[in-house]
């Protein structure tokens, strides 16, 4: 890339070649647009995501303490977290936490629950079938599709490796 130098507004308006002008303009826009601080956002995500995980661990411990075996305890924890995320979405709080926590609220299973509850709330007015039914997966859909697709591909690789005696 030759245009490492600072692009000025003058370069943009004096450029007669549209493609080059657009390139200059995009470069210039990048320079003047305020950016998020990555370390700050990462720290916030770590904090919020960490708190969610600690809450999850507390539930797991509680369920095991109540007599569930480890697998069942974890399952109960998942159900509890999903329930809480949906509840918070319904009362409009999840978005407020996400605004602060970013990926910290997106990556745990609570983010997945939110991504389905939010369209359900939004599109309820358009009916049970064409509203909720069709649109509930608008955000989560790609995750499910490519999640399943990836496990299928990995499954085949695993199968082949097994045939070859590697694993």
């Amino acid at each position: 890339m030759s245009e490492k130098k600072q692009v000025s507004a003058k370069n943009i308006i004096n450029e007669t070649d549209t493609k080059l002008r657009n390139e200059y303009f995009n470069q210039y826009v990048k320079d003047v647009t305020p950016k998020n601080s990555i370390p700050k956002n990462t720290a916030k995500a770590f904090l919020v995501g960490g708190i969610i995980c600690v809450i999850g661990q507390a539930f797991t411990n509680y369920y095991i303490y109540m007599g569930a075996d480890e697998d069942t305890g974890k399952l109960y924890t998942t159900i509890t977290l999903v329930f809480l995320a949906i509840l918070l979405t319904g009362v409009g709080l999840y978005q407020k936490i996400a605004k602060f926590g970013g990926a910290g609220t997106l990556v745990p299973i609570t983010g997945f629950a939110n991504s389905m509850a939010a369209p359900a709330v939004e599109y309820k007015k358009e009916g049970q079938v064409f509203g909720i039914g069709c649109k509930i997966f608008t955000i989560a859909g790609p995750v499910i599709l490519y999640g399943i697709f990836c496990s299928w591909v990995l499954g085949i690789i695993y199968y082949l490796l097994k045939l070859l005696g590697v694993v």
Binding site: P34, K35, Y94, Q95, A98, E122, I139
Partner: peptide, 17 residues
């Protein structure tokens, strides 16, 4: 928001721009 972006309660962050 509904038409151009995400459902209102979806947890996302808006950039400064």
């Amino acid at each position: 928001e509904k038409q151009f972006r995400f459902p209102l309660d979806y947890g996302n962050q808006r950039p400064y721009s």
